[in-house]
């Protein structure tokens, strides 16, 4: 099996620098890192990829069984690391990918030596004494809308994007494929993402970890960042003065600075 083709692996940046793996979250693809890559490329070798079902991954490799749990996605990450024979790389995961990263560093500690969690959430649904930000009904509505609504969400997943004469540097290709996601596979990924509970996995993280959360995240509230910080021994929490769930896009300078500071201080 050609893992690099399956996950549309892209390697860029400084080939002799330490390696940083950037992993996108639900509903996205590697394009989400387009403002992060320039900040890393001079000093680091940057590895980007798409999960199967997202972006330009090989859709024929999709398996509903494999991707019904985060373990399947974590296995993909480990296989990408093996295919590139990465050693001592740093894994940067956004949103659900932060939890996929937790599983991946546990499986391949010799390949992944540190973890950056961008807007992570180990559990989206509120629970006894835990605030995840969503009620069970919210998530049921989300999953039902993905199940039933071909023309709504799936059309929204691939919106017709208008041209932009002011920004010629944006290639047509990027505009037309931004975070393209196969609707059927997105349903499976959504179920896996929003029904998972990875809280118990956090305490097993034994590598240096940076947690980045947003002051005003519409998906994961502040309590979630604090929960993750407390659960991972020795972790660092940086709260970005940012709105939204994608600080790497909405506040790229602050996000990049936090990541590069963390990378520079790694032993």
């Amino acid at each position: 099996m050609d893992v690099e083709r399956r996950n549309n692996v892209t390697v860029t940046g400084n080939p002799s620098g330490p390696t940083v793996v950037l992993a996108h979250g639900f509903g996205c693809d590697q394009n989400m890192w387009r403002l992060t890559v320039p900040a890393l490329a001079d000093d680091y070798r940057v590895v980007l990829f798409d999960y199967v079902g997202a972006g330009r991954s090989d859709l024929s490799a999709f398996s509903e069984d494999r991707y019904a749990s985060l373990d399947g996605y974590a296995q993909d990450v480990v296989e990408v690391c093996e295919a590139l024979d990465l050693r001592d790389a740093v894994f940067v995961g956004h949103s659900v990918s932060a939890m996929i990263g937790v599983l991946a560093v546990g499986r391949a500690p010799e390949r992944l030596r540190a973890l950056v969690m961008v807007a992570p959430s180990p559990r989206y649904i509120d629970d006894d004494g835990y605030r995840g930000g969503f009620t069970a009904e919210d998530i049921a509505e989300l999953l039902a809308s993905l199940e039933s609504n071909y023309l709504g969400w799936s059309a929204a997943m691939a919106p017709v994007i208008m041209g932009n004469a002011d920004r010629p540097e944006l290639g047509e290709e990027l505009k037309n494929s931004f975070c393209a996601t196969d609707p059927d596979m997105a349903r499976v990924f959504a179920r896996t993402t929003f029904l998972s509970d990875s809280r118990d996995d956090l305490k097993a993280v034994a590598v240096p970890t940076l947690i980045l959360d947003c002051a005003r995240d519409v998906i994961a509230p502040r309590e979630v960042g604090a929960f993750v910080h407390q659960a991972i021994p020795g972790s660092t929490l940086v709260t970005l003065d940012a709105t939204g769930h994608c600080p790497h896009l909405s506040a790229p300078e602050a996000t990049n600075e936090a990541i590069t500071d963390f990378l520079a201080r790694l032993p």
Binding site: G25, A156, P159, N164, D166, R167, V218, C246
Partner: peptide, 28 residues
């Protein structure tokens, strides 16, 4: 709605920032 929030964060907002405008997006 939750789906709309997610879509806003992952597509609407990044695309708006990238292009300066966006039209005809289906939300609730």
């Amino acid at each position: 709605t939750v789906g709309g929030k997610l879509y806003h964060e992952t597509h609407f907002s990044p695309l708006l920032r990238m292009q300066g405008e966006l039209s005809g997006i289906a939300l609730e």
